[in-house]
Design a protein around this nucleic acid. Structure first.
Lengths: 216, 216
DNA sequence: AGCCGCTGTGAAGAAAACTTCACAACCCTC
DNA sequence: GAGGGTTGTGAAGTTTTCTTCACAGCGGCT
C-alpha cells in the first residue's frame, strides 16, 4: 500500500487533499506543521510527501532539508499559495520532485503524485547487483575516471578514453574496460563505442551521492 | 580554461553576457539560436551552457533535451524574460542547474555560473582523494560485515566481532579493523570497544540505500 | 600491396591486498 | 603469581589485482 504524508497548516486543504488521495486508492497520513511531519517521518516509512512551502514554524523547505538527511530519495512535492519563480527553482534545486501552486485542480495533483511515484519506483526496481563486484569495480581510481568521463561524454571510442585520461598503455585501459564490462556498468554498441549501461548510470549517481554525504 | 556557450536570439544580451563572463575569466562562445548551439556542442566541448528558454525556431527546452543525449551531465542554466512557475519547474525537472529571469544582475549570473561549475566539478577533483580509501575499505566483504554488525550492536568488543562473524584467526580481524580505523569509519573508546564514527554511519546508510536501489 | 593507427588477446612480471604465524603485553581470576 | 582469555604487533607467506610486453587482426589511406 502506497502511503502519502500530507503536510499543511490549513486544515481544510489538508483534509480535502487527503480525501482526493484516499479516493484514488492511497493511504494518507496528515501533519499540521513541519515538526509534526518530521516526527511522523521518523516513525514510519512513507512513499511520498506533499509539503506546504509556507507554514507557521518550520517551513516546507526546511522540512525537506531535514528529511533528506534520513531519506535522500523520498519523493517530495511542494505545494504553495504564494508561488514565485525563485521559490520554485530553489525547491527543485533542493530535490523536490514537483512544485504545485494553490489552488490546483484535482487531476493536476493526482498526475503529479502518480508521476513522482512512478519515477521513484523506477529507481528502486532494478536487477540485483553483487556488492562485491560493485565495490570492487569502484575501488580503482582509474575505473572511476573511466565511468566518469564516459558518463560526461555520453559515448566514447577506445582511444579517446585513453587520450582523455592520459593513459599511454592501451592494454592497461583494456584491462579496466573489461572489468567494467564484466561488472555490467559499461557496454559497447555496434560501432564499438563505449557507453554506460543503465546500471552504470545508477552506480555513478550513487557514488556521487555518497561523496556528497561524506563531505557534508 | 573553462568554456561557456551562450545561446540567445537577442544579440545585445548575448554580447553583454559574453562580456561579463569574459571579464570574469571565462572563455565564451555564442550561438544565436538552438540549431546553431547544437552544432557547436557537437564540435567542441563546453563546461557550461547558458540557454535562452524562448527563441525563434528551437526553444531552450528542446535544445536541453537534445544535448542531454550526448552530454548527460553538462550543466545548463536557463535564462528567460517570460518566467512562469510552470516553466521554471519544468526546466528544473529536465535537469537545468538553475533558472534565471531577465533582467538579472551581473553578480546573480556570475554566482549561478560559479555554483553550477562548482557542483559539476565536485566529483572530479575533491572527491577522488577520499574516494580511494572509501571504496577500498568497502571493497572487502568482511569489512562490510564488520561495519554492519558493529552498527547493529552499537558497540562491540574485539572478540565478540570475531565470534559473531565466525573468524577464528583474530589477527586477520585485526588487519581489517585497522583498515577501517585508518579509513575513519571505526574507532575505539577508552574501554577498547569498537564503534562506528559519524562517517561510518553515513557510509552504512549509503551502502544500504545502494543495495536497496540496485536490488529490486 | 604496404603502412599505420585502432582495437584487442594472453601470458609473464610487479604490486597491492590479504592471510598466517610467532610472539608479547595486559587484564582477570583462582 | 600462575593460568587463561583478550587485544595487539611485525614479519613472512599467499592470493588477488594490476601493469607490462609481445603479438595479431582489422580498416583506411597512399
Amino acid at each position: 500500500m502506497t502511503e502519502i504524508l500530507v503536510v499543511d497548516d490549513d486544515q481544510d486543504l489538508r483534509e480535502s487533499v487527503a480525501e482526493v488521495l484516499g479516493g484514488a486508492g492511497f493511504q494518507v497520513a496528515m501533519a499540521a506543521n513541519g515538526e509534526r511531519a518530521l516526527e511522523f517521518l521518523g516513525q514510519r516509512k512513507f512513499d511520498l510527501v506533499l509539503l506546504d512551502l509556507i507554514m507557521p514554524g518550520m517551513g516546507g523547505m526546511e522540512v525537506m532539508r531535514r528529511l533528506r538527511e534520513n531519506a535522500p530519495r523520498l519523493p517530495v512535492i511542494m505545494l504553495t499559495a504564494f508561488a514565485t519563480v525563485e521559490n520554485a527553482v530553489e525547491a527543485m534545486r533542493q530535490g523536490a520532485q514537483d512544485y504545485i501552486t494553490k489552488p490546483f485542480r484535482v487531476d493536476t495533483l493526482l498526475a503529479s503524485v502518480r508521476r513522482a511515484l512512478e519515477e521513484a519506483s523506477f529507481e528502486t526496481c532494478r536487477a540485483t547487483v553483487n556488492m562485491d563486484t560493485l565495490m570492487g569495480s569502484l575501488a580503482n581510481p582509474l575505473r572511476r575516471q573511466i565511468l566518469f568521463c564516459v558518463e560526461q561524454e555520453g559515448s566514447m571510442r577506445f582511444m579517446d578514453i585513453c587520450r582523455h585520461l592520459e593513459i599511454e598503455d592501451h592494454t592497461k585501459m583494456n584491462f579496466h574496460l573489461k572489468v567494467l564490462k564484466e561488472a555490467g556498468f559499461l557496454t559497447q554498441d555496434e560501432r564499438k563505442l563505449y557507453l554506460l549501461t543503465r546500471q552504470g548510470r545508477q552506480v555513478m549517481e550513487c557514488a556521487r551521492m555518497l561523496v556528497k554525504k561524506l563531505s557534508a
